[in-house]
Design a binder for these strands. Structure first.
Lengths: 121, 121
DNA sequence: CCGTATCCTATATGATACTG
DNA sequence: CAGTATCATATAGGATACGG
């Protein structure tokens, strides 16, 4: 499988500059997906539960507005990281959850956490 | 050492919500450091060489302006990821390089690259 | 060569009111 | 409950000219 690159192979490609050539770099698109003030916190909330409702997300993420929560969720959905399930009930009921693609971000956050434990006071 | 957390321990803390509590989360500060249109490309250029000059960075990073290159480098320097060495010569000569803290980001980029190879077309 | 200063535009985020 | 619509503000990014 093309994506089972080893760390040694990766370092070699970095040194040769192969990964950044002409839009080859897979990191920039991912950083774009995570950009924005609330994206990571939203993903983090979604990590903790199998599914979570709009209102609960809003309650848990301190300071976020309707507008930002909605637009962030839409973008994460468009990027395939989050899925939205709507129940046609009264009152309305919507549940958000991570897709497999979204759950596969966890090893990245793990690596970031290890770095952070070392360097963030 | 506090930062040698295992993946299992990490996953457990995620589920319990411990890592996001009251500013505990080490990932958000890191994401902030990498935020901005040019930061990652700059770090990537610095990965490939031991040291690189301002002019060469500008030449290699397509489309970046003086203003953005300067301000991005300053912020990376303030965050301790990049170091700046000035040679007092005529004409002026400045070299930028990654610090240890900056080099330690590589496992994160490796994890991102693996994810990207799997999911970025 | 390696920037800074200034001004301008674009995008991101925020506040508030309202609705199916 | 889960949003949308509208308007306002803040921050990021860009263009250009100039200086040590």
């Amino acid at each position: 499988m093309k994506y089972d690159i080893s760390y040694e192979e990766y370092m070699e490609k970095v040194k040769l500059g192969i990964l950044t050539e002409s839009g080859n770099c897979p990191v920039i698109p991912l950083l774009r997906m995570l950009q924005g003030k609330w994206k990571f916190e939203i993903i983090y909330e979604l990590c903790m539960k199998d599914a979570i409702r709009f209102g609960e997300l809003k309650k848990n993420i301190d300071g976020i507005t309707n507008t930002m929560l909605t637009s962030s969720l839409r973008e994460l959905e468009d990027d395939g990281l989050v899925s939205r399930k709507q129940f046609n009930e009264i009152p309305p009921h919507v549940e958000y959850s991570l897709t497999e693609k979204g759950k596969d971000l966890l090893p990245i956050f793990y690596a970031m956490t290890k770095w952070g434990f070392k360097y963030i006071p």
